[in-house]
Each structure stands twice: as C-alpha cells, then as structure tokens.
Write a protein that binds this DNA or RNA. Sequence first.
RNA 1: GCCUCCCUAGCUCAAUUGGCAGAGCAGCUGACUCUUAAUCAGCGGGUUGAAGGUUCGAGUCCUUCGGGGGGCACCA
Length: 495
Amino acid sequence: MPADTEATPPAPGDLEQSRRDKLARIEALGLDPWGQRFDGHRPIAEVRQLDAPPPGASEPGPPVRVAGRIMLRRDMGRVHFLQIRDWTGPIQVMIGKKQVGETGWELANLLDLGDLIGVDGTVGHTRTGERTVFATGLTILGKSLLPPPEKWHGLSDIELRSRQRYVDLFTNPESMEAFLGRSKILAAFRRVLAERGYVEVEGPTMQTIAGGAAARPFVTHHNALDLKLYLRIALELHLKRLLVGGMEKVYELGRVFRNEGISRKHNPEFTMLEAYEAYGDYHSMMELTEALILGAIDALDGQRVRSWDGNTVDFTPPWPRRTYASLFEEYVGVGMHDFEAVRERAVERGISVLDKDDVVIVAELFEQVVEPNLIGPVFVVDYPAPLCPLTKRKRGHPDVAERFELFVHGVELANAYTELNDPLLQEELFRKQLQGQRAEDSMAVLDEDFLRALKHAMPPAGGLGIGMDRLCMLLLDRHHIRDVILFPLLRPDHC
RNA sequence: GCCUCCCUAGCUCAAUUGGCAGAGCAGCUGACUCUUAAUCAGCGGGUUGAAGGUUCGAGUCCUUCGGGGGGCACCA
C-alpha cells in the first residue's frame, strides 16, 4: 500500500480526548482498561431479589459480584454513587474511598458514564432505602471512549436509534425489553412446534425461481455458475417438497425478502414462519395458530387481554371463525355473488371497476371495507377460489378455497390453507395466473420442479404462514416494524 | 416513485418580522462519605446536514443535493 493512501485517523474531539486520557491513566495504574473474563457475576435483577439487611443495619449483607454499564454517576467527594445496568435491570453501587483500596479509588475517579465495570461488594440498603451494592472491589471491564446520550431523555431520534441500535439498546430500556420480548416469542414458537413433533428445516434463500407468493424479488448473481439468482419471497414451495419427501410435520422460521416499499408495516427483509402438517387441513392450522400465539403470550406475561395502540384485544380462545362471504355481506351490505350490486358498491367507494374480474372487485371491497373492522382476533375462512392458486378447493364447492387469514386490528397476521396437492389443477392454476402479470412477478415463472414434486404425490396437508414481525409489533405494543427489527434497512449515512 | 414536513454543540431542545447562535444534560477545574436526573461555584464547547443564490445582513428566504419522519402508491 502506498503510504499516501493511508487514511489518517480523524483527531478525536474534546469529549473523546478526555476519555482517551483517562484510558491511559487506567493503563498507568497497571489495569487493563478493556477487561478480562469476569466469572461469577450475577444478573442484577437477581441481586435485587436477594435477602439483604435493611437500611441502617450494622452487619454487612451477602457478598455479590455484578457487572454492567455506568448509567448515572453522583460524585460526593470521598464517596461515589453509580447506577449500573445490565440487560436485566439497574442497581445502585456505592464506592467509598476507604472501602475499595487505593487502586480501586484511583480507578473510581477515572470512570465515566458508559464505562463497563465489574463490582464486588455486599448487598444492602442506603439510609434512604435504596438497594445498593456496597463496593469492596472495582474492575474496569471496558472503557467507553464516546459519551452516551443524555441521561434523562436517552436517544430519542428515531433514525439514530435504528442506525446505532447498540446505543439504543443500552440507553433505552423499553427497546431492550422489546427485543428480548421478540426473542421470547420466537423461542415459544419453536417450543410449541417441537412439542407437537414438528422439525425445523432450512430451505434455500437463494433460488433460481422465487415462488410461493406474488412479490418482486431481489436479484443477485453467482459468479462461478454465472447464474441469476433471486432471494426467496416465501418459504412455501420448498417446504411442500419436503412433505412429498415424507417429512410429515415441518417448519421453517426465517427471513424472506421482498423488493417493495418500506412502511411502518413493511421492511424489505422480514421473518416468516411457515409450518406444514401432512394429513391435516386448515382447521388443524387454526388450532395450531391459537396454540402458537397463546404460547407466545404466556412466554411474555400471560395477559390475554392486551392493548395495542390504545385499543384492547382479547386473545382468549377459541377465536371466532367467520366466513369471507358472511363478513362481506355484513359490512358491504350486498352478497358477494351479486356482481351487479358489488360493482355499484365499488363505484360508490371510488374503486375502479374497468377491466377487472368480479372477484378482484370483491377482494378490493373486502380489503377497503371489511378488513379495517376486523379488530379480532378473528379467523376469516373460505376465500373465493380464484384468489388462492395454492389452495385446495372445498369439496363440492369449487368456487371456495379452504383458506383462512387471521386478522387483528385490521392487520393480516396469519394466512393458511388446506394445501392444494393436485398437480394437474396446480399447473392449470399457475398458467392462469401467468396471464397479464408483470414479468418480474415471480408467480409468472412456472416452477416445473415443484410440479414434478407434486406428481410424486404430496399428502393432503394443512399449511400456515405467520408474519413474525407483525406479531411482535402486536404482542409488544409497538407501532412501527422498525421497533421490532434490530437492524432495519436504511440508506447509508455519511458517518 | 409522488406529496409534505424536518435536519442547530456528544445528547435533548430554544433562537420574535431576515438583525450579536442559546439552555439543560454530558465534559473540564474545585467543594462535599448516604446521593437518587445529587447539589453548589467557575470554565470550555458550533462550517446551524452539504453546496450555491438573494440580501447591508441568512439558523430563518430561494435552488440543487444528502439523510430522516409522516402520508400516498406498490405490496394475493
């Protein structure tokens, strides 16, 4: 490398320089400012539960070791009070000059907000009744060279919170709580599925045909094979191949990618659960859906009556099942098969009816008129068959597909079918979908291998998809998908 | 992609009609062994997102660009 291309590091600002000076002084004490393995520290939430002597007690409380980040610092001269926090919560630490030894006291005077420290001490209470670790030893575990956000307001700028999630997490406890909640929801899902005998698998995220949904895919390229590849937009078609292979209860919980707009309900990559049960149908999937979501609720706090965006939803099972047709009639006011009346209603609502199939108009009316009313949770069942190319038709009712969607607060949370396993009908439906579709719409590419798999006979099955990000929003009372995705897609900034 | 609003110190926010860029927290110096967003005294900190324009004078008005928020569109 030519020397003149080497970037000279920017001069640190005053705030950073002062911390670098302290870093050097900590090293001069013979301490490693970046710390080492620190065994035996206990979660702070646990320390808060320990039996400890009351304020003013003469005998010391039980010895403990904790580790965390300094969030508040009150320097009273020969005694310092710190509030440190780990991912379970905060606790106060009292550092007395006489109690921590000479080096410990010198270290205490070099600590800043944001530093990571380990504390050995005893648990007790101060005179004002605050639970406190009275330090007998201090260990520096990581010197923070940058100042943390303001101690009272934290980091509030929504952009900075997403870009610097590491800062958001350690300054805003509600953010940490949301992401730990998300983890609990995912773990609960896996536990419920495992208890029911499902196996977790991993399909390809890079595919030569991105099928299973209608969405614009991301495109990439494999150099060695000189192959155009798409990031998957759904999990469906590969999981069904596994049903053919004999995996009877199978699921994948993973990322899918859709090259479309970003909104409070949409991120280009999001997490989906898809589960398939051989010899089941959409009724078995409704029961599974209830079990999964109730399992997640129990893992969080067990509250079945939950608020979201100021409204209340009651998740006590069983959740109502309502047919698409009956909801349509109730809210639109006409029968969905009375196409003349349907068109009139559509025109009244400003929906264009030119060159549209009757069923497309029905679907648009349903979306606009019915869905906002579905506070739920409610299973909408039995969809118009033309909307459901991957779904088995109801026996004796070829115009009805055995499909349900679960709605809560007007948001589609889950989508499930009795899976279509007739390869001849499947091929016919695929070809019908092809007509008039944009070339980039993935359904417009026939997946011949999937049809070949079906020809080997796929068992009749129930299949379920759940948008995990939206479920997290709902159960954690967050109103932006960015609040439940750790690193949402953003344009690069110039930092 | 379209409409609209926003971007001021590390963070949270002010700045009247276009008229000297400010505060709190954080930082630095000092005091204090029971504080609770500790307190008290003093000190430093800015290319107002970037570039250009109008003007005697621009954080403020105009243009372009960058980033973001909200809405719409796209999204079985």
